[in-house]
Design a protein around this nucleic acid. Structure first.
Lengths: 337, 337
DNA sequence: TTGTACGCGTTATCAA
DNA sequence: TTGATAACGCGTACAA
């Protein structure tokens, strides 16, 4: 049996109330008795029981992270930022990895009731209106990252602008046949990261007076395999693109693999540009649209903590910007040379 | 205020004891009253409070993972295995990321007292004898992964054999000047993954009657930068190795980068072999020694759960094996052609 | 089979 | 300033 506040009280010859006051350094306690209590605490090596504490305080000191975890590097980098912030704030991070839609919905409905966490960070998962309203009704603070809900604080990057930068860059290099590999879209279309990238593409195309060619747009999984397959499809058509913009770096890596397999030289015959800015992109010298992933993680925690401490704060939308990074997979279009 | 067991009891017209029995499906409850209670639970959408529950049961349903998290892919892949297993067993995973030695020791001493987790998974971190004994005295189940302690259940891969495989393979290809890039060693030397890889190297060298050349062994960080710098040092010497064995894939990737920068062709002029078998190695066609990382994660959880349910089980040592994967960064030594 | 009362380890209230 | 006592929400002996 672990030592409790009662043991300390007995040893120090005081009531448990006094011990509690010492622990929570309340002001109204005689310096002398405080000494006695502190001595007893030290002697018994007493640590308050966090469970009993949160029984009363309704605070657990931990925050939950829901995400389709290990399917994308993006999450890992965001999670890394969360890690740093949570250690700094002395909060525990509890992982809720979702693999299926059923599980996602189970978490959406159970996590708020359960109260095992003081707040919830939701990554790249968009709760429907019912669930979103459920969160606010249950009074559990939530911050959405890379997802948007009008009733929840959302942290998004300007994906339209990011995609626009990428495609505009390609156009300026003389590319006229630009293919787009999108990631699978779930949830609502408004403010959907994947969809926004498509919109950005359209805008850049429109500005340049270029036509959108439907056969140059394909949607696949957010994975190397997805990118590989998509590139194979795109590059096997009679009419080939001279550039491919992928909605994620990992898909772009798949494109690079396919290009190598088909003996298509990058960037001489094909320009490739990714999205995210994961470490791998630097390694492979892949041009990309960099998202501030770590910062997103840290910022999300900070926003969440604010809402845990001030539950009355209204939901807000935070937009972050991307940075185009040109490396060695983009070059002038063959025809422009 | 959330609905409690009392509300349910009132609505169902029974005592709270009965409600509790229904929740925990105790046998001694009249089917009819069970129905009534279940109806009330459904009507009120009642969920038992996990905090109050664990107050009594002394179980939190969550398990902690201590690791130097996001510094190596290795951890991420192991963590992925843990994720899968913990979801299956309906346990929460709590992250304790350690960045500094001070923090590691703080966790070592505080986590067992705190009892916020039912058990602890410790990755690539070796608690000293004092801490290790502390764990067993406090009665908190612990499983060490990629680390060893005589008093704690440890899950290790046979790193000596793994390194032996790698170096033997190089020797068979005619290499006589094999360099070794080790990762920084912490903790005890016995059963230390990094040190074991060095031992395996020695053994293979010895079997072949080859001398160990101290200037061909360098120790650096477990990172690309580390590998890069080490390779630069190794390849700038007058006497150059024809093969480099790195203690981790990520360091081997750094070697590849340096080789490219120095215009040294791999594998024609230099063979490179890594360790771990991270996804990146496949992508770069890097030869490597594959560890069963995901399996390690899953297995660690299973072992931990056993010890949570049967605390009397003695500590044990579980050894896993590696697999040599030859890809395109290893070839015959220049002199053997 | 069922209800009551107690205990888990704290914090908060209130009287002293 | 301090101590006793009542919550917090639940599981479980024990009595009925």
């Amino acid at each position: 049996m672990a030592t409790t506040i009662h043991d300390v009280a007995r040893v120090a010859g005081v009531g448990i109330g006094t011990v509690s006051r010492v622990i929570n350094n309340s002001v109204n306690v005689n310096p002398l008795t405080r000494e006695r209590v502190l001595a007893a605490i030290a002697q018994l090596d007493y640590k308050p029981n966090p469970i009993a504490r949160s029984m009363i305080s309704k605070r657990t000191g931990s925050i939950g992270v829901m995400a389709p975890f290990f399917t994308r590097f993006f999450f890992i980098e965001v999670l890394q930022g969360m890690e740093m912030a949570s250690v700094r704030l002395d909060k525990d991070l509890v992982l809720y990895s979702v693999d299926t839609n059923a599980q996602r919905d189970r978490y959406f409905s159970e996590l708020p009731m359960q109260r095992k966490v003081d707040g919830l960070l939701i990554l790249s998962l968009t709760p429907g209106a019912a669930f979103a309203n459920g969160f606010v009704e249950k009074g559990i603070p939530v911050v959405l990252v890379d997802a948007y809900s009008p009733v929840l604080t959302s942290l998004v990057v300007n994906n339209i602008e990011g995609a626009h930068q990428a495609v505009k860059c390609l156009i300026e290099k003389g590319h006229r046949h630009i293919a787009f590999i999108n990631g699978i879209i779930e949830g609502n279309f408004k403010f959907n990261p994947a969809n926004d990238r498509l919109i950005g593409l359209h805008r850049a195309l429109g500005e340049a007076g270029l036509l959108f060619e439907p056969e140059f747009a394909v949607t696949t999984e957010w994975s190397r395999q997805g990118g590989k397959a998509a590139a194979l499809q795109l590059l096997s058509q009679k009419k080939r693109p001279t550039a491919i913009f992928a909605a994620s770096d990992i898909q772009a890596v798949g494109v690079l693999e396919t290009a190598r397999a088909l003996n298509i030289s990058v960037p001489a015959d094909l320009s490739v540009i990714g999205y995210d800015g994961i470490e791998l992109s630097e390694l492979l010298d892949l041009s990309t649209v960099q998202q501030p992933m770590q910062y997103m993680g840290e910022r999300a925690i900070e926003e969440l903590m604010q809402r845990i401490e001030h539950p009355e704060l209204p939901a807000r939308l935070i937009r972050l910007n991307t940075t185009l990074i040109e490396r060695r997979t983009t070059a002038l279009a063959p025809s422009s040379r």
